[in-house]
Design a protein around this nucleic acid. Structure first.
Length: 724
DNA sequence: GCATCGGATTTTTTT
DNA sequence: AATCCGATGC
């Protein structure tokens, strides 16, 4: 049986492309994952390649898992025996971690390095700022850390970092210390996993040669979300004459804030001039009406390669726009509509999804579901792994695995409280530092060596306390090889953790339930070593927490929705300052990303799409009115039902006059409508993407051929209108 | 060393 | 409104 016969002709061409640099631009729902898995299948089945020579990279564990399953069933179908060597398939971060552990000798950390998650990274920064006496109110540790992270993603080392502002001067001071302390903790942060590997490959030609030989065929999912380091990593691994198959959709690039650079698509074309490009435009997911709405939103975007999405599912239900009174009313509409659709019998609860811009928006929706007694599932790793009690237990495990991890040790050394307060801790850490020994290791030494000089320098009380705790730690360390859940149980028992968190209140019981969930999770991953378990926990993504076990509506952010599909989709909060988010208002690039975000949301819908907004909304406590999102104006009117842009439709009288989906009548006429060509004295020629009347003047956003996006005031800029 | 109180702050999105 | 941080008092 021919493997290609399952595919449409565009897909076939991509899948069977000759080895080399291949770029597949895949519209939403066009069978992107299918093409990737079939490509792997094609390489093995039709071209007889060794599965072990194939490396496939994704962004989430979930995507990796899915692809692995699909590849293995594909191979089974074509009766390819699973040999000794498998396809290497994982996220950028997990594959990098695996390689780094193998190559640890060439690194400033040992192979047991810990992976610091975001909150560890932030507490490290906070600590440094405290030591340096930098006001954490004036400079948010979070923003300092973000600056460090973006520098790392652009591969600017601490030494090379240049400050151009006072803020950056602060960053410049913190950055080297941050790096130093990571090493002291024998830890890497997320960025390090990629940066260290890239610099290792650059430094060690032999190592690079080894991995190039090993992974001769590389495939990348969601290529538009790669950042600078990831791109460099690909180039390093791929080598001179690469077989590099990348799949992506620049229209779905929504991780700019995390360093993703959709221009990597352009870079790829430039770096591999012989690259073949394939377009996948047939959509197998949505109705034509939904696609038309999606295209209406995205076609306003700057100089992109336009894809003409089409589907065999002509027509479809109109898209419903709903204007609620406030967020509670909006939530009510969602829950009510879901109930109604269910009662009609065509929709099962699990078919529905509610998407929003910010996590904060989920609460109101959750409350509405709870009040109506409808179960729901909420996507978000933070929800579980961010819980204090979960983090505590993970911190115990991390110290057991890597006693050098001081950040985790600080978290648990007095949790539950065992009389080792801040002062004692400080003294102890100082002593350990003088003795040039990691505090975690010092604890073990205290317990195991009664002659240790450390005993003498500690006050008798603190000495006893620390020695006792060290004995516990030493005991746990001896159990490192035990199944993780047994070790965890031991820690809980030894520390009296249950009585510490479960105080009998509802909250306490909830916390204990979280611990039990963590325990059963550990049991589920029975085969994993402690190292693997910790790595899994560190590199987990929000999407990974999504299980299809229960048939209930799904609540998730638009970001988390990428790559998923649902028969019925609600997108809530289509208001100015929410979507687009307030933070994106003064940067055209960010505004463009908001637009793509909505595009991603719309294209998740298979059959029905509901777009909601609220007339007034609560922001940080106080309530205020809000305007409809500008993106609503770009929906094709003939496909939209409800409060139609440009047509006054049934709006409750009480607030009809004050709001509408319409653009308010401009004081001044728009002179440069979106789409028109203009010339600017210094910027040259460009196309107007957006035009708004603000305080009597016209504010236009123009994509210039030479200089990119600019935002201008028409009367000041002296724009000249060109005829096409 | 711990609890409590008051105050400020709230950067969407996450590997 | 809620949460998180830090300072204060016991």
């Amino acid at each position: 049986m021919n493997l290609l016969s399952d595919l449409n002709s565009q897909q076939q061409q991509a899948v069977s492309a000759d080895p080399g640099a291949v770029l597949v631009l895949a519209g939403p729902g066009s069978g992107k994952t299918r093409v990737l898995t079939y490509r792997i299948g094609h390489l093995i089945v039709d071209r007889g390649l060794d599965p072990g020579s194939i490396l496939a990279l994704t962004f989430t564990n979930k995507a990796a898992r899915e692809m692995r399953n699909r590849v293995s069933s594909l191979l089974k179908e074509h009766s390819i025996p699973s040999g000794d060597r498998y396809v290497t398939l994982g996220t950028f971060h997990s594959v990098a971690a695996r390689i780094l552990r193998r190559e640890a000798e060439a690194l400033p950390v040992t192979r047991d390095f810990a992976i610091f998650d975001q909150s560890d990274q932030q507490s490290l920064v906070r600590q440094i700022m405290k030591v340096f006496k930098i006001d954490t109110k004036q400079y948010h540790p979070v923003s300092i850390h973000n600056a460090i992270s973006s520098a790392k993603n652009e591969m600017v080392s601490a030494d090379a970092y240049q400050a151009h502002s006072y803020f950056e001067e602060v960053v410049r001071r913190v950055y080297p210390e941050y790096e130093r302390l990571l090493r002291v903790n024998n830890a890497l942060d997320f960025d390090d996993l990629l940066v260290m590997l890239a610099s290792l490959l650059r430094r060690e030609p032999l190592v690079t040669a080894h991995y190039r030989r090993n992974y001769q065929h590389i495939l990348v999912d969601e290529f538009q979300d790669t950042n600078m380091v990831q791109y460099q990593l690909l180039r390093l691994l791929a080598g001179e004459s690469p077989d590099l198959f990348v799949v992506g959709d620049p229209d779905q690039s929504i991780y700019r804030w995390r360093g993703a650079d959709h221009r990597n698509v352009e870079r790829f074309r430039k770096d591999y001039p012989d690259a073949k490009t394939y377009l996948l435009e047939q959509n197998y997911r949505s109705t034509q009406i939904i696609l038309d709405c999606a295209m209406g939103v995205i076609d306003r975007q700057r100089g992109r390669q336009r894809k003409q999405l089409f589907t065999e599912r002509q027509g479809g239900d109109p898209v419903v726009l709903h204007e609620a009174y406030d967020e509670a009313d909006e939530a009510f509409f969602v829950v009510d509509t879901i109930t109604e659709l269910q009662d009609k019998g065509q929709v099962s609860p699990g078919d529905c999804a509610v998407m929003y811009r910010t996590n904060a928006q989920s609460r109101v929706i959750e409350e509405a579901f709870i009040r109506s007694n409808i179960p729901y599932r909420l996507v978000g790793a933070q929800r579980f792994y961010g819980r204090r009690e979960v983090k505590d237990l993970i911190a115990y495990l991390r110290v057991i695995y890597n006693p050098k991890d001081q950040i985790s040790l600080e978290r648990i050394i007095n949790t539950p409280t065992r009389g080792i307060g801040a002062k004692s801790q400080q003294a102890f850490f100082e002593i350990a530092k003088q003795g040039k020994i990691a505090p975690g290791e010092a604890l073990v030494q205290l317990a195991q060596d009664s002659q240790s000089p450390l005993h003498a320098v500690l006050s008798p009380r603190v000495d006893t306390l620390l020695t006792d705790f060290g004995a516990l730690l030493a005991d746990w360390i001896s159990m490192r090889e035990y199944p993780v859940h047994l070790l965890m149980n031991r820690v809980i028992a030894n520390t009296g953790y249950q009585s510490y968190i479960d105080d009998g209140t509802e909250e306490g019981i909830g916390r204990w339930e979280n611990i039990q969930e963590l325990l059963s999770l550990a049991e589920e991953y029975e085969g994993l070593t402690l190292q693997e378990f910790l790595e899994h926990v560190a590199l987990i993504s929000d999407q990974d927490t999504l299980t299809d076990s229960q048939n209930a509506p799904t609540l998730l952010t638009l970001h988390a929705a990428k790559g998923l599909e649902f028969p019925v989709v609600f997108i809530i909060g289509l208001d100015e300052n929410i979507l687009p988010h307030q933070r994106s208002m003064d940067d055209p690039e960010e505004m463009a990303e908001e637009r793509r975000l909505l595009y991603v949301g719309i294209t998740r819908a298979m059959d029905c799409l509901f777009l909601c907004r609220a007339f007034r909304r609560r922001v940080y406590g106080s309530s205020s009115y809000c305007d409809p999102s500008r993106f609503v104006r770009d929906l094709p009117q003939q496909h939209v039902q409800g409060m139609v842009p440009g047509g006054g439709m049934p709006t409750p009288v009480s607030y009809q006059q004050q709001t509408s989906w319409n653009t308010p009548a401009p004081v001044r006429e728009i002179e440069f409508p979106p789409g028109s060509r203009v010339r600017h004295k210094t910027f040259g020629e460009g196309m107007v993407l957006e035009s708004r009347i603000t305080s009597g003047d016209e504010e236009v956003t123009v994509e210039f051929a030479d200089v990119g996006l600019k935002r201008l005031i028409a009367s000041l800029a002296g724009l000249e209108k060109l005829n096409d």
